[in-house]
Design a binder for these strands. Structure first.
Lengths: 132, 132
DNA sequence: AGAAAAGTTGACGTGCGCGTAAGCGTAACG
DNA sequence: CGTTACGCTTACGCGCACGTCAACTTTTCT
């Protein structure tokens, strides 16, 4: 709890994941905890990445998708050529997310409409008697 | 192509899925094609449901989640008690989707910001010479 | 009629995202 | 100083969402 380094358990409690999950993410090169002897210590950077991972999952991205996305967040530590490519990928991803955002809006409107219709139906049916 | 019924191949071409997928969805009670002899014929209703299934998947919902969601779209064919419950579930789902919508917006803004920063870095580095 | 095309039912295989023991090291506590 | 707790690795298992044969019936075309 040096405020800089967190043990695996502290991470689990903080983000509601299991140790297995964190080790799994490390094996997939999504996280890079440092080692104090044998034990893992997760840095602030790992915490930031984990937040992005969990968010990505909620949007339906695969871990491999997310791994690539994560690179977009330390743009600057790279060679120029690689960076150009990374930015291109990032822009594509951004477009995808915008489409998804729009589609979600449509879905919300549709479901909202269905609910309204349902409520009306219910009101009218309920006015007299429910299946008397 | 009676415009009402579609064969499995027509469905596959129309929605870019495999026969296996459609049969799988039927086995999971997400679709209910009628049978003409042995063959499946998909109705307009199946097509509407398939669209919702594919959309749900893009949002990261499981097929089981989606199966439950689909019921929300034929509200009205139910008993009153069941309908009340369905509406309640629908409202919860709607809230969840609104949260996701909001979170996606945040993510979009963040990634957008990262890209801008990256572009700046690239511009400055590119002005002189790339890693000379 | 005969062959190719399309569809059907099993049933096993596969990649992803972890769960779940098994067995071992170590460090912290009473 | 033993034991309890936490952590590590290795490895097999599992549920989901299909992919991929295999073997067979049914149309459809010529």
């Amino acid at each position: 709890m040096t405020d800089e380094m967190m043990t695996i358990r502290e991470m689990c409690d903080a983000y509601e994941v299991t140790p297995r999950t964190l080790r799994f993410y490390e094996s997939k090169e999504l996280l890079f905890p440092v080692r104090k002897g044998q034990k893992r210590l997760f840095t602030r950077r790992d915490r930031a990445r984990l937040k992005l991972i969990l968010r990505g999952k909620r949007f339906g991205f695969s871990l491999e998708d997310i791994r690539q996305l994560l690179d977009l967040y330390h743009i600057g530590d790279q060679q120029r050529t690689q960076m150009v490519r990374t930015l291109a990928v990032a822009r594509e991803r951004l477009e995808e997310m915008r489409r998804q955002h729009q589609e979600l809006e449509t879905a919300i409107e549709e479901l909202s409409q269905q609910i309204s219709t349902g409520e009306e139906t219910l009101a009218k049916a309920g006015a007299s008697q429910p299946k008397a």
